[in-house]
Design a protein around this nucleic acid. Structure first.
Lengths: 193, 193
DNA sequence: TGGTTTGTTCAGAAAAGTCTGAAAGATTAA
DNA sequence: TTAATCTTTCAGACTTTTCTGAACAAACCA
C-alpha cells in the first residue's frame, strides 16, 4: 500500500507497524512480527531515523533500543514536508536557478528559459505556501483546510473591505453573499464520494 | 533530477524534453535526441499518455504522431493531482475505511483503529482541500497561495465580522490590524534562501 | 576476564525494474 | 495488391535495488 513514495516497501511496513502499534518497539520484535531479517530491520530503522520519522527511546529495565513514531499526525506531515523539501525540492530549484542565470544564446534558448522560469515559479510558490502554513498552529491549519475553496469568499470579502477603511460606509453589507455562513466552517462528516 | 516520484527516469526525461521544447515532437526525434531505443520511447509515451501528461497530435503534412505537454503549468498540476488521487489516495482511503468498519475485538484493536482513523481523516482533509481549491480559477488560486500564512489574518477578520451582519455596525473597523495590507498580496520576488 | 545480548556492516544472492532488438501490426500511397 | 513508413509488443539481456546471513563491534554482566 502506497510504496511508490520514495521510500521502499519494507521501510514502509516498519513505519506502519510502529505507527499503529502506538508504543515503542525493539528491533527484534519488528523483525519477528514482519518476518524480516534482523539486518533488514536495522537498515530500515536507520533510514527512518534519517528522515526523522521515528525516534529512539530507552525503556527502563530493557537494554534494547526501542523505536516509536510521533503521536500526532500533523507532526508527521510537518516532518515529511520539511525533509522532502530539503532533499528534493531545494536541489531542484537550485538547478533551475543555475540554468536561468545563463545568458540565452538564441531565441530557442530564450523560450526554454521561459518554460523553466514558469516551472521554477510554480514550485517555489507551492513550496513557500506549504512551509508558511505549516508554521501555523494545528488548530488554525485545520480550520483553513476545512474551509477549502470557501476561502475565496473571504478573499472577495477582503477585496470589498478596504472601502470600510476609506469611505464612511460600504455601499451595503450583504451578509448572505460576501460573508461565509458559519456552517462552511463546520465539520463536514467523513463520508466520502 | 527528481526521478523519485513514481515515474521512472527515462519517462521523466521524455516529459522534460517535451515540456521545454514547447512544440510537438515525433517519437523518433525524441529517441534520437535522448539516445533511447525507439521502443523505449514508445513505452514511455504510452505511460505519459496514461497519466494524461502528454497528448497526441497530428501535424498536417506529416504522417507521424507528435506529442506535446499542456502549455500551462497549472494545468499540469491539476492533472497530476487528479491522477495521483485516483491511483494512490483513493485506494488507500478505501482500504482504511474497510478496516475501520470492522468491529474491534479488544482494546488493542480499538486503539489501532483510532490511529487509522486519524490517518484517514488527515488524508481526506488534505485531499479534499486540494481538490476543492484546484477547481478555482488559476488567478484566484495563485492569490490564495501567495497569501500564505497571511490567510490567517483573513480568518481572524472573518471571526470578528459576523457582528457586521447582525448588529448595526461593528464596534470600530481597525484596518491596520485585522485587514491585511495590500503588499501581503504583492509578488514577493524570486530570490530564495 | 569471558560469556551474553544487542546493534551494525557488508558481500553477494535474490528480486525487481528497465531497456533493447527483432518481429509483427497498422496505416497510407500507388 | 505491394512497398514504404511508422508504431507496438515482448522475450530476454542488462541494471539497479533490496534483502540476507555471517562476521564484526560494542555494551553489559558476573
Amino acid at each position: 500500500m502506497g510504496s511508490r513514495w520514495g521510500i521502499n516497501r519494507t521501510v514502509g511496513q516498519i513505519y506502519a507497524l510502529l505507527y499503529i502499534s502506538g508504543h515503542p518497539l525493539p528491533a527484534d520484535e519488528i523483525a519477528e512480527v514482519l518476518s524480516f531479517s534482523r539486518s533488514n530491520v536495522s537498515m530500515g530503522l536507520k533510514e527512518l531515523q534519517s528522515w526523522r520519522l521515528v525516534r529512539l527511546q530507552h525503556l527502563p529495565g530493557d537494554r534494547r533500543e526501542h523505536f516509536s513514531t510521533p503521536g500526532d499526525v500533523w507532526q508527521i506531515v510537518r516532518i515529511l514536508a520539511e525533509e522532502r523539501r530539503r532533499r528534493e525540492i531545494d536541489p531542484t530549484l537550485s538547478v533551475l536557478r543555475d540554468l536561468l542565470l545563463k545568458k540565452p544564446g538564441n531565441a530557442d534558448e530564450r523560450a526554454i528559459q521561459h518554460r523553466l522560469q514558469e516551472m521554477h515559479d510554480l514550485i517555489e510558490l507551492l513550496t513557500r505556501w506549504s512551509e508558511d502554513v505549516q508554521r501555523l498552529e494545528t488548530q488554525q491549519l485545520t480550520q483553513i483546510l476545512r474551509l477549502g475553496a470557501g476561502i475565496i469568499r473571504l478573499l472577495d470579502l477582503k477585496n470589498a473591505l478596504p472601502l470600510l477603511g476609506t469611505k464612511r460606509r460600504p455601499a451595503k453589507s450583504p451578509p448572505g453573499d460576501a460573508i461565509p455562513d458559519e456552517d462552511v466552517l463546520a465539520d463536514e462528516g467523513v463520508d466520502g464520494d
